Amino acid sequence: MLRSFIAALFSTLLSLFAQADTFIVGAQNIQYYPHYDFSQENDKGLAWAILEAYADRSGHELIYYDMPVKRLQLEMLKGNVDFVYPDNPKWYNQIIPASDKFFSTPLTRALGGTIVNPDDVGKGLDRIQRLSIPLGFTPVNWQSRVDQNLTRLVTVTDTLSALYLLKKNRVDAANLEYSVTQYLALTSPQYGPFTLDPALPHDNVGFMLSTINHPEVILDINNFIRTHGELIESLKQKYNLRDPETILQELRERFYP
């Protein structure tokens, strides 16, 4: 109880005494709603909602620019953007090494994996000879098969294009995020239904904010997330985003009882 009070007091003091600044957030120009879609004028997804809640309490102003994945790190290196979202120290990046960046705690956790037509669940890894993947994404779990010419990557510019190819059977699977595909299948039923096969490669990955010049803001954001658990949880419920492990367990019980 005392620890929680001290953490809350520390957060309040930071907000009171920190100088309010304007920062530029460079974000992937990929439709990954409900996690994020920074091309939208109004509601940009959960990550945006969390960052805006932080900005409201800290006094900072956050301005968002969406741009191609491969440009983000370069623009931060040039000093044109202050932060990059999403980022993760495990992701491949040849422009700025992870050791040179400061990362926030995950704003949200995503279940990336192998998206297939429901009738193809359980048919195994060897069936996946063509895999669609958004341009700029790193197929970590598939790299071995790609190197052995067992799976060919079909790069696309956006998530809907990946699902279109899957719907038309021009690829065998798509390397995408589960909640994103469920949202798109709900709002654009002509592209669905799809599901994630829990027996095929998947990841529970944290979507973080990164910077090279503003570690003090990262610390402040981390403290905000830690001390505003109820707010963060309510935002997750608003965007219907659940813990990846919970989703995986449900999928395993459904398809592999």
Results as ranks from 00 to 15, higher is better:
71 R>I: 04
133 I>F: 02
42 N>K: 10
112 G>S: 04
228 H>T: 08
27 A>C: 01
61 E>V: 13
121 V>S: 12
248 L>S: 02
179 S>A: 15
135 L>K: 12
21 D>F: 09
83 F>Q: 00
237 Q>Y: 01
75 E>S: 02
52 E>C: 02
67 M>R: 12
55 A>L: 02
122 G>T: 06
224 F>N: 08
109 R>V: 14
65 Y>N: 05
36 Y>D: 01
42 N>D: 06
113 G>A: 10
89 P>E: 09
194 F>R: 00
185 A>S: 13
228 H>K: 08
234 S>G: 03
252 R>F: 08
68 P>Y: 08
213 N>Q: 15
229 G>T: 13
244 P>W: 12
65 Y>C: 07
19 Q>W: 09
66 D>V: 03
31 Q>L: 05
97 P>S: 14
121 V>G: 11
185 A>L: 10
190 Q>E: 12
219 L>Y: 11
151 T>L: 06
81 V>S: 04
77 L>R: 15
217 V>L: 12
192 G>T: 06
185 A>R: 03
19 Q>V: 13
250 E>S: 09
122 G>W: 12
133 I>N: 08
103 F>D: 01
133 I>G: 00
81 V>A: 09
45 G>R: 14
42 N>G: 05
119 D>V: 13
237 Q>I: 01
192 G>L: 02
202 H>G: 07
38 F>V: 02
200 L>W: 03
120 D>E: 06
193 P>Y: 02
247 I>P: 03
114 T>Q: 00
257 P>D: 15
60 H>C: 06
66 D>E: 03
156 V>N: 07
253 E>I: 11
189 P>H: 07
247 I>W: 08
46 L>F: 11
130 R>N: 13
123 K>C: 10
13 L>Q: 11
3 R>S: 14
251 L>N: 01
87 D>H: 10
37 D>H: 09
201 P>V: 06
98 A>C: 05
219 L>S: 14
133 I>M: 02
86 P>T: 11
68 P>Q: 13
104 S>D: 01
150 L>P: 01
176 L>W: 06
19 Q>L: 08
128 I>Q: 12
152 R>N: 05
193 P>C: 04
174 A>C: 10
80 N>T: 07
11 S>F: 06
39 S>D: 15
31 Q>N: 13
187 T>H: 14
139 P>M: 12
203 D>Q: 15
45 G>N: 11
248 L>I: 02
9 L>D: 06
237 Q>L: 05
79 G>L: 10
60 H>L: 03
201 P>N: 12
15 S>V: 06
254 R>Y: 03
232 I>Y: 05
146 V>S: 01
30 I>L: 03
111 L>C: 10
79 G>E: 06
98 A>D: 01
203 D>K: 10
242 R>N: 08
85 Y>M: 01
150 L>A: 09
80 N>F: 03
135 L>R: 15
198 P>R: 09
34 P>Y: 04
44 K>A: 03
247 I>G: 02
174 A>E: 05
186 L>H: 15
158 D>A: 11
13 L>E: 03
4 S>W: 14
88 N>Y: 09
73 Q>D: 11
71 R>G: 01
95 I>P: 01
35 H>K: 05
204 N>A: 10
165 L>V: 04
50 I>F: 00
